[in-house]
Design a protein around this nucleic acid. Structure first.
Length: 749
RNA sequence: GAACUCGUAGCUCAGUUGGUUAGAGCGCUACAUUGACAUUGUAGAGGUCAGAGGUUCGAGUCCUCUCGAGUUCACCA
């Protein structure tokens, strides 16, 4: 053996050795051949699928490490162990990256029909999808690659669609014309979870509305959004507001259009805020939308999905929201309709979590999943799983946060106006509805045309329209059918919206196990541990509970381990602009995968952020070297004829304690603590004390060898490469029987 | 406005159900070392565990309050 552990040579060979031994696959792995398979407990983890086209970052390295530790431990226990890997198509993220590429070529998504764009993105993802997988392997992940699944695999998509059909059949899916969170830049709607809120100082305009009968008199209304005034038809005051009671039923003039507006009363209005009078903009404010529905007020749309003012804006039509606001304010000022402006008004505005631009509430017909209408709702069942302990959350108070999310969850908008995703399997009947279906498509000359089918069919055939289709917008009143195949009778046109990526991700534990190998679902569901970052608790974990319980009656996992963010050595968040981003592959190249793994996991706590840096990698590289050299010592000093020494009994007792404590910590998912504990016992007890005792002759070399063999097993889940590498040396010296450490039974407790 | 988390050695952090002299890594001081390892060893300095009160035989650990930091949610024109 060399005096220093050389990881660069060994890591690739070792990984190949494991793969060759079939160690990752529960169907081929043999750990405890004498154990009755009937008695075997199962242990399964579904790997959180990384985005197929993203390279690895340090967060991936953390989840790979934690999951691999648990998997290796349970595999060594002889349990039926599966770690199922996969990748995610990541709808919006991926389409956005692809659109940036298009932009460089001076193209946009609107230059292509849907199926062309889809297959372009498909090819792009295929080119990149191998990268993440290869990188995960470099970290030593002992996942069963024979069961690798992609979210757009045919069978997965079939099952996702099936769930939608079932939800629809059970009345849990509905289509409704509602205000949705729309990003005019990204060109799609989002669920409430994708909207961030930021503090903002926005001018608050006090606008004068003259009375219709006595034009010299007016009332004043405060607004931060003057630009859709032309779409407003009503003002409102609080019915209990004595000061303004006289206004109810009175009529004023719309300062932009001159049309008559009636003042109504509703409790929603806060008499203390602003002037105590609000303008109602039902199409662009959630509260106003509710009031409009209540009183059946007209919903005039002022802003298009492209973020432009609509035709009813008259001379302002076509302007962007921002420019429209400027010009409209200037016009109102000119006309004397601006009383004053509060420039220091503090509010919070919703922005797109991706592009950080303001979210526009827009009325659109979309598909929603009912989450919370009664006790047996999706939310109700998820809460029951938490109450009963069927699913336990590990991670610094995150269970309370999850409950808070569940209790305040609104119906889930699953429609996205993008191409890269699973199409919603909904069809609208054309005959008799031509005027209620608006489509946008590229005609045979590749020119974009938009209009109702009624007008478009005059100059184009239905086949031409379908071939170049980009968007279908069917009136909310239309009947529709849910079908995964084109309906055979009559003329139909398919919905062009795709599912929120999280709608398929939410079914991941179910749709993977149902499609890997026959029997996998029965064998491995519910899974044992779901390990992921706390930042996607509401997006993913919560929704997996909602849909997992819906599809199977059982919560998809019994424990949820939420790891924290990886921060830099000073505890700062990593970001490209700060230049403090750790590239896991660079660390692997310089210090070895074992060092990276151990540095990430040692003393980490679920739900708590972890800071790591160069000194940590170095320290763990030193630890790997320490392991290597202690083993070298054991080999060099090994004497088959050595006799028992005075401290042997005490040594074996302590060694048994270390095994018991390590096992107990791992059983309790205290991975960071286990790593710290084994580190200390190995270095500061075994090396500093026991080896010195052996040198002094008070401990036998047999005991030292036994210590090394045991510690290799205990350390293997954490630092698989160096320990396996030593095991191979021990095996070639015929000091251990089993051929590979990865499939060697965990020491008996 | 609310919830959650955190405040432990110079720095970054562990410390599970409350139980003997509070730990690790890095850093610091002194010394050692050519047959496991300088990617080392030995010894040491350094902590009134944010502060105050309480429960307890016993509190870094549980409760209350105060101060400070962070994260997230809500919100009204």
């Amino acid at each position: 053996m060399e005096t220093r552990y050389n990881f660069t040579q060994t890591e690739k060979e070792i990984y190949a050795l494991w793969e060759k031994a079939g160690a990752f696959n529960p169907d081929t792995v043999v750990v405890s051949p004498d154990r009755d398979p009937q008695e075997k407990k199962h242990f399964s983890i579904i790997m959180p699928p990384p985005n197929a086209n993203d390279p690895l970052h340090v967060g991936h390295a953390l989840f790979v490490t934690i999951e691999d530790i648990l998997i290796r431990y349970h595999r060594m226990l002889g349990e039926d162990t599966l770690w199922l890997p996969g990748t995610d198509h990541a709808g919006i993220e991926t389409q956005f990256v692809f659109e940036k590429k298009l932009q460089k070529n001076k193209q946009s998504r609107f230059d292509f029909d849907r199926s062309t764009l889809y297959s372009m993105i498909w090819d792009y993802v295929q080119e990149n999808s191998g990268i993440a997988v290869e990188q995960i392997k470099q970290l030593g992940a002992s996942a069963d690659w024979s069961r690798y699944t992609f979210t757009l695999d045919e069978k997965v998509v079939e099952d996702v669609l099936e769930t939608f059909k079932n939800l629809h059949k059970d009345g849990l899916v509905y289509r409704d014309f509602r205000l949705v969170n729309y990003c005019t830049k990204c060109g799609t709607s989002y669920s409430e979870l994708e909207v961030d809120h930021i503090d903002s100082t926005s001018p608050l305009y006090y606008v004068k509305y003259p009375f219709i009968d006595t034009e010299e008199e007016f009332i004043t209304v405060a607004t931060v959004r003057p630009e859709p005034i032309f779409a407003d038809t009503h003002l409102a005051v609080n019915p209990t507001d004595k000061k303004h009671a006289y206004l109810v039923g009175k009529q004023v003039k719309n300062p932009l259009t001159g049309e008559t507006m009636t003042i109504i009363a509703d409790e929603y209005v806060d008499p203390e805020f602003g002037t105590g009078i609000v303008k109602l903009t039902p199409a662009h404010d959630p509260n106003d939308f509710e009031i409009a529905k209540k009183y059946d007020l007209p919903i005039n749309i002022a802003i298009t999905p492209q973020g432009k003012l609509t035709d009813i804006a008259g001379k302002f039509a076509g302007l962007s929201v921002v420019n429209g606001r400027k010009e409209i304010v200037a016009y109102l000022e000119e006309q004397g309709y601006i009383d004053h402006v509060d420039t220091k008004y503090q509010n919070r505005i919703g922005i797109c979590y991706r592009c950080k631009r303001p979210i526009e509430p827009l009325p659109l017909p979309q598909f929603f999943i009912k989450v919370n209408d009664d006790e047996t709702s999706l939310v109700g069942n998820a809460l029951k799983a938490l109450d009963s302990g069927e699913t336990k959350i590990h991670g610094a108070g995150r269970e309370k946060i999850l409950r808070h999310w569940l209790n305040s969850l609104k119906d889930w908008n699953i429609s996205r106006q993008i191409v890269w995703g699973i199409g919603i399997p909904v069809w609208y009947p054309i005959e008799g509805n031509e005027s209620k279906i608006t489509v946008g498509f590229l005609n045979t000359d590749k020119k974009f045309i938009q209009g109702t089918l009624e007008t478009l069919l005059e100059e184009n055939t239905l086949e031409e329209i379908k071939a170049g289709i980009q968007t279908v917008l069917a009136d909310a009143s239309l009947e529709y059918i849910v079908s995964t195949t084109p309906p055979s009778d009559g003329l139909w046109i398919q919905e062009t919206d795709t599912f929120d990526t999280w709608f398929s991700s939410a079914q991941w534990p179910v749709v993977t196990l149902k499609n890997t190998k026959p029997g996998d679902f029965e064998r491995f569901y519910p899974t044992s541990v779901m390990e992921t970052g706390y930042d996607i608790l509401p997006f993913w974990v919560m929704r997996m509970m909602l849909l997992g319980i819906y599809s199977t009656g059982k919560s998809p996992f019994s424990d949820v381990y939420l790891h924290g963010l990886v921060r830099d050595a000073k505890g700062n968040k990593m970001s490209k602009s700060k230049g403090n981003v750790i590239n896991p592959l660079e660390v692997v190249a310089e210090y070895g995968a074992d060092s990276l793994r151990m540095a990430l996991v040692i003393r980490s706590t679920p739900g708590q952020d972890k800071s790591v840096g160069e000194p940590d990698f170095k320290a763990m590289r030193n630890f790997g070297n320490k392991i290597w050299n202690a083993s070298r010592f054991a080999l060099l000093s090994h004497d088959p004829k050595s006799t028992e020494a005075q401290n042997d009994a005490e040594f074996y007792k302590k060694l048994a304690d270390v095994v018991a404590e390590s096992s107990s910590l791992l059983e309790k998912l205290q991975v960071g603590l286990a790593a710290d504990y084994i580190y200390n016992e190995f270095w500061h007890w075994f090396c500093d004390t026991s080896i010195e005792e052996q040198k002094a002759g008070t401990l036998s070399s047999t005991a030292i060898l036994e210590g090394i063999v045991t510690f290799m097993k205990l350390l293997h889940p954490f630092m698989p490469f160096v320990t396996e590498s030593i095991w191979q040396e021990l095996h070639s010296e015929k000091l251990v029987d089993s051929e590979a450490l990865i499939t060697t039974p965990w020491p008996a407790i």
